[in-house]
Amino acid sequence: MALHMIKLCVGCDTVEELVEWQANREPAGPWIMRTRQTPKRAAELVETGSLFRVFKGVILCRQKILAVDTVGEGVNARCEVTLDPDCVRVAPTPRRAFQGWRYLEGKDAPPDLERGADGEIPPELARQLREVGAW
């Protein structure tokens, strides 16, 4: 069974903003998400996992986890999670706010949305439909 990580996306309201921010940052390089605590189940995350991102209370995308590393020592130790640059949109799924990150079991992970579908719904309309409970 796949094991994933879930984390709030702070500072971006949409997947497009996140992708644009990452594309315009200096220096260019791999996507690295930094956090305080290194997951004890890091090996499982690298084998099968993705980082699912929560935007304003809704899971909207995921990125495959490529590596999980601890950098620094002692009180200065931090975790760096290297991510695939491809953001895969997932079925919008409500999620309550939390601090830090959490594990997400594969059975609880939202499914990927089809790419390039002719009937792709604009993100703003999808948000409004979710708010009224129609999607």
Rank of each mutant, 00 (worst) to 15 (best):
Met1Ser: 08
Ile6Met: 11
Cys9Asn: 11
Val10Cys: 11
Val10Gln: 03
Asp13His: 07
Asp13Val: 09
Asp13Pro: 00
Leu18Tyr: 08
Ala23Thr: 05
Arg25Leu: 09
Pro27Phe: 05
Pro27Gly: 06
Pro27Glu: 00
Gly29Lys: 10
Pro30Asn: 13
Pro30Ser: 11
Thr35Arg: 00
Arg36Thr: 06
Arg36Met: 07
Thr38His: 01
Lys40Thr: 09
Glu47Lys: 09
Thr48Val: 07
Thr48Asp: 08
Gly49Arg: 07
Phe55Ala: 05
Gly57Ile: 00
Val58Lys: 12
Val58Cys: 15
Lys64Leu: 12
Leu66Val: 09
Asp69Ser: 03
Glu73Val: 04
Asn76Ala: 12
Ala77Pro: 13
Pro85Ile: 05
Arg89Asn: 15
Arg89Phe: 14
Val90Ile: 11
Ala91Pro: 00
Pro92Val: 11
Thr93Leu: 07
Pro94Gly: 03
Arg96His: 07
Gln99Leu: 10
Gly100Pro: 05
Arg102Gln: 10
Lys107Ala: 02
Lys107Phe: 04
Pro110His: 07
Asp112Lys: 05
Asp112Cys: 04
Glu114Leu: 14
Gly116Ser: 12
Asp118Leu: 15
Gly119Ile: 04
Glu120Phe: 14
Pro122Glu: 13
Glu124Met: 06
Leu125Gln: 14
Arg130Glu: 01
Glu131Gln: 10
Glu131Ala: 09
